[in-house]
Design a protein around this nucleic acid. Sequence first.
DNA 1: AAATCAGTCAACCGCCTAGTA
DNA 2: ATACTAGGCGGTTGACTGATT
Length: 179
Amino acid sequence: MEGLGVRKGAWSKEEDDLLKQFIEKHGEGKWHQVPLKADLNRCRKSCRLRWLNYLKPNIKRGDFTEDEVDLIIRLHKLLGNRWSLIAGRLPGRTANDVKNHWKTQQRKRKASDAKKMKDKSQEKTNATIHYCKTSTTNLHQKVEFFTEERCKFRAYSFKRELYHIFTNTTTNCGIRECN
DNA sequence: AAATCAGTCAACCGCCTAGTA
DNA sequence: ATACTAGGCGGTTGACTGATT
């Protein structure tokens, strides 16, 4: 049975050579025969993946070009997470590469969106703080002024405004008429 | 210089489908 | 119709590496 005592993890140079030699001699496919005939202590899936994602000739390494990125975005819109189909349209790129690239970009986008949201809310908070600071100063002065003038109603209404600034509410603040 | 963090990429896992006995 | 096997795929993990603190 596959999986008993089968080697896992990174492939060695020797294993790569054995796999390459086998494929060159017998061609792709027949993956179930590979471990036995190539004398590899690996499962068939691992052999297939190693070949497709790393050893296969013409695999392109390095950064994705702008054209490739653009194509990935358009194809993803069209096909969703069908990485093998998308990779099929990108010569030299594997489904694994495309998938990894997409995930990385997605993470970056999320991080940048989160930062934008944070900045926006910080802006809002700062504006509110600024508004409160200036408003409260003005209102306190008005309350004091009208209290001194014995203008109870005006002083009361400015107290209400103060309260609303601090509690950010328009419900009954419970402030009683000042004396 | 050491510790921590973040990004990248190879590899594994589990599921699905098709073919076959 | 059912069970089994192989191939294929997408999601996820973990090792590695370079950057930052």
